[in-house]
Amino acid sequence: MSAKIISPKTYVLVWLALMILLFLTWGASEINFGVFSPVIAIVIAVIKMLLVVLIFMHVRYSSRLTWVFAAAGFLWLMIMITLTMGDYLTRGTVRPQNKSIPEWKVDTESQSR
């Protein structure tokens, strides 16, 4: 088999990085960053995922076809989440044609949380 052999030292370094990121994301959750709190948590999770996928799962050293396979699931997941949330996050922001602006404002105010 022609798979590349990566030194255990690299693996231990990646693990150290993962633990530091875990500590960071845990610490960040104790601080109030407002709307950025979830953003920070998800960005750190994505970095952790990339470290695991690229090094532990050897994708960095694998064929281009492996890159396509690995990216496919993630890409389709992103499409699913983006389109669905594109709907939910914009509900009530477009005025229906059969309603005047005052009518529509009353409607959206009664619906908003």
């Binding site: 994301t25 845990w26 109030n32 709190s37 695991v52 799962m57």
Partner: peptide, 26 residues
């Protein structure tokens, strides 16, 4: 088997912030 195991780890990497972290301060 290793690939599968790392995947299980990745699922948890995302479950952890979604369940435990993102709502502590928001």
């Amino acid at each position: 088997s290793g690939l599968y195991w790392h995947f299980v780890d990745i699922v948890w990497i995302f479950l952890y912030p979604l369940i435990y972290l993102i709502s502590r301060h928001s």
